[in-house]
Design a protein around this nucleic acid. Structure first.
Lengths: 209, 209
DNA sequence: TGACCGTAGCTTGCATGCAAGCATGAGTTC
DNA sequence: GAACTCATGCTTGCATGCAAGCTACGGTCA
């Protein structure tokens, strides 16, 4: 129940960065964050180190921690990696034959909830499900490294989204339609088509960003 | 010149893990490593956190740090990701037209040195250059995220290599030949062929592992 | 005016101390 | 003999203190 304070420091700082309040270059101070949370510098320092490992912070010895600025083509980079990884894992997941019915059921259930949220206009929760939907396929490929990378990409995309764009109803509708097509392709076991859909899906994001 | 002790702790621990002495599950103690290096627990603790972020250590609160065991198909996972990422970045690097001549020159120079090391039978240094060769192409695509991922993959492959196989003269000769073909394809600007070569190259590794 | 120097205040790096969680084994009870 | 309890020694989590590097600024000197 009691969350370790180091974890709180990590979550807090990470959400500060991902929420898009910082364009990049801003210096975060350990003491500031420690005071905000009412804890000592040590766990904050640890959080900073973890975030540096994720390339979200850049630590300058005895100078401070700078929020890594988003490179001008960070969106392109991230989406390119998503395309490469998701397409590769989808091929593998489908390559061995049909997907397990449990996986297909999970995807279908996810799409159902997407439909509800889209109808309700809850964009925030929709993007969470969007991310989870893609993660299902990756998990089905049983490639732990791919899943690890996907989480890192998700964070970066999160930041891009808050920084650069508002997701509106039409983006949601478009994404939903494409997810439905992807589900259908997965059910048919059509890896080529699924891969094509993923590419289009991701590239459309890129058009938006 | 004076390397921070936290950095030494990180390097030391990481090389312990990557060198293959641990099959996985072994508990590393902060105090043990701190004593080995003659430093206090704090920087060791920080190193452990960073390594947990790279999924090389698994920290159990107040119990210890366990070396993450290599999954039975870790080799497959890692090489699958390498194929996906390298192929994607190669296409992008070549997609915009011919590679800058500086990049081609760097690749050629690298291959030349590979040839020397292969002739000298220096396998250890050869694999370093091997890795650097692949990194050149990724760097040419100017995708920082891809480069980041490639470094993570390199570490894992490093560990796999020490754990599972000895690189012998014939593997070196085969890799060198394939690198030469890749260089030629890059010089011609033939992305499809380059991608095909990368796939074969990586899959041959997989046969070895 | 411009360059230089030193100091004050910031920052983090690291060592240390204390407390608390967790495992293990001895001792007890049934 | 089996289960249960508790104490001991292990581990890490976190706070704190001190030292050292970096920056900026005010003063001095040419």
């Amino acid at each position: 129940m009691t969350q370790p304070v180091a974890e709180r420091a990590y979550d807090h700082t990470k959400s500060l960065i991902l929420s898009g309040g910082f364009a990049g270059g801003e210096l975060l101070s350990e003491v500031t964050i420690a005071d905000e949370l009412g804890i000592s510098r040590t766990p904050v320092h640890e959080a900073f180190l973890r975030l540096e490992g994720e390339k979200l912070l850049s630590l300058a010895p005895r100078r401070g921690a700078a929020v890594v600025p988003m490179a001008p083509d960070e969106a392109r980079d991230v989406l390119e990696m998503r395309e490469a990884i998701e397409c590769s894992t989808a091929r593998r997941a489908l390559g061995a034959g049909a997907l397990p019915s449990a996986v297909l059921a999970e995807m279908a259930a996810n799409v159902d909830r997407q439909r509800e949220l889209a109808a309700a206009g809850d964009e925030e929760r929709f993007v969470e499900l969007d991310s989870a939907f893609h993660a299902i396929l990756i998990r089905a490929s049983r490639n732990a490294t791919a899943l690890f990378f996907h989480e890192l990409l998700r964070d970066r995309q999160h930041r891009l989204r808050h920084q650069l764009l508002q997701v509106g109803p039409q983006e949601v509708a478009g994404a939903l339609a494409e997810h439905e097509l992807m589900l259908a392709a997965a059910q048919r076991g059509d890896a080529d088509e699924l891969c094509r859909l993923i590419s289009g899906h991701v590239r459309r994001h890129r058009g938006i960003l």
